[in-house]
Write a protein that binds this DNA or RNA. Structure first.
Length: 448
RNA sequence: GCCUGGGUGGGGUAGCUGGUUAUCCUAUGGGACUGUGGAUCCUACGACUCGGGUUCGAAUCCCGACCCGGGCCCCA
């Protein structure tokens, strides 16, 4: 093996891609139905886009280089900043709110681990132009729906940075972010030391510790007692009300701080079992970045799903297929190409020998590739589920058949075969396809 | 950035208390069985991650790099 892929990157083979695309489409479907439009931004951007406000955490992880025009370029480590840049650059006068979704690769120079790669994929959603609790709630509800559709169960935690920040309004902003970082790490000791250093009065310190420790049922009431009747507080309460309307299960957690510095209001994270230390599958919140990028101050809210992580834990079913292999002889290859084209035009997955194999070996080969696929199915889906619904058909193109203007239609599972005309074959295959789809639909309804 | 386990043909493995041509299974290409499949047989292809060191001799012992896995940190 001479060459290999760079550390932390992956190749995706056809069967795995099929599974990824399937899940991706589930997420797309959700976003589309909620009225979000897909966007795409460049793979690389000027590095300032990310150094401006993403926070120290990200800086050391950026993949950057100088291009031939001596510009400092960075491969995007995340997608929120590019989306806001795009908004500022060309969409500021568009009717609000703007609702976007994206699915793309990002790059971070980190130590690879379970659910962590140097090139990884994020599926994200942003609402630009609304600061209302309705937007925050919609975004959270959509995130939960997406995960559900992908067959992922997670724990939803919701917090609000405005509340914590209100308590710290006397403290300098850069000290605030440092405090938030310590809060996020749950590093109580470090936090205590830092507060000592800043000579924070005991009263405030006590309030802060109590606030970030608040969880669950009474968290809201207690928070209100601590910070008083501020706007962030009523916003947060309005948000929680809406989450109840959406029927979501959540845990209030005012200790969520997020690693990126640009969040200002609502923040949420969703955690999952089975991913080791990388248990966060989704994170997001409300932020204000537009002004920083030279636009008018514009409230936004959004989140990103760690696509690779949900692929590790998601429970999806293998999608069985009807497939057809055209089998021919040396003297019927041209006729075989014709019927193959007909079948493909009719929409069927159709194989044709490309190796000049003999009749017998072509049949053998069908089994060989089926078996190889089933091996992958076991690996990717954890079992042979739904493969029994799958059927492979062979269309035999021989001189005997051609004389009659027909083909031999052979069911590989049972070995049964009949002489049929092309149109008969097509309608039979359509029937089988419909049967398969109905069965799958039935299973979906049953499991729902 | 820190801690930790591991790298033998494409996949799975034996060898790893140093000693001939590195074992077996599977996959792949070709062939036999000459228009009916998952079998069998023949044949071809194919590996000790890389670089140093110890030694008469290294897949085997030591060091480093690279890669993979796991745990921190951080995040998705």
């Amino acid at each position: 093996m001479e060459l290999q892929r760079p550390r932390g990157t992956r190749d995706f083979l056809p069967d795995e891609m099929a599974k990824r695309r399937y899940v991706e489409n589930k997420l797309r479907e959700a976003a589309t139905r909620w009225g979000y439009g897909e966007i795409k931004t460049p793979t690389f951007e000027h590095i300032e886009l990310f150094t401006l406000k993403s926070g120290e955490g990200i800086l050391g992880e950026i993949y950057n280089f100088k291009d031939k025009g001596d510009r400092e370029i960075a491969l995007r480590p995340e997608l929120t900043a590019p989306v806001v840049r795009m908004y500022v650059e060309e969409l500021q006068r568009s009717p609000k709110p703007l609702k976007f979704f994206y699915f793309d690769n990002c790059f971070r120079y980190e130590r690879p681990q379970k659910g962590r790669f140097r090139e990884f994929f994020q599926f994200g959603v942003e609402i630009i132009g609304s600061a209302r609790p309705e937007s925050d709630a919609e975004v959270i509800a959509l995130a939960v729906e997406m995960l559900e559709r992908a067959g992922v169960r997670g724990d939803l935690h919701v917090g609000h940075l405005g509340i914590v920040r209100a308590l710290m309004k006397e403290i300098q902003p850069e000290h605030q972010s440092k405090i938030m970082r310590l809060v996020d790490k749950k590093d109580d000791k470090g936090l205590e030391e830092f507060l000592d250093e800043l000579q924070i009065p005991d009263e405030l310190r006590g309030k802060l510790f109590r606030l970030i420790g608040l969880r669950g049922e009474n968290a809201v009431h207690e928070a209100r007692e601590l910070v008083g009747d501020i706007e962030a507080m009523s916003q947060f309460e309005a948000l929680l009300d809406l989450l109840d309307v959406y029927g979501l299960e959540y845990q209030v957690d005012l200790g969520i701080a997020r690693g990126l510095d640009y969040y200002t209001g609502m923040v949420f994270e969703i955690y999952c079992e089975g991913l080791g230390a990388q248990n966060q599958v989704c994170g997001g919140g409300a932020y204000r970045l537009a002004q920083l990028f030279g636009g008018e101050d514009t409230p936004s809210t959004g989140y990103a799903i760690g696509f690779d992580r949900i692929m590790e834990v998601c429970k999806v079913e293998y999608q069985p297929q009807i497939r057809v292999a055209v089998i021919c002889f040396d003297d019927t290859r041209k006729e075989a190409i014709k019927i193959t084209k007909e079948l493909r035009d009719a929409g069927f997955i159709t194989y044709l020998d490309l190796m000049g194999r003999k009749f017998r070996d072509q049949l053998t080969h069908i089994n060989t590739i089926d078996n190889a696929r089933y091996e992958q199915v076991i690996k990717l889906y954890g079992g042979m589920e739904n493969t029994e619904l799958e059927q492979t058909y062979a269309i035999i193109v021989g001189t005997d058949e051609l004389k009659a203007g027909k083909y031999t239609f052979k069911e590989m599972g049972s070995g049964q075969q009949t002489l049929m005309m092309d149109l008969e074959i097509i309608s039979r295959l359509k029937e089988e396809t419909k049967k398969l789809n109905d069965t799958m639909e039935g299973k979906r309804i049953l499991s729902a």
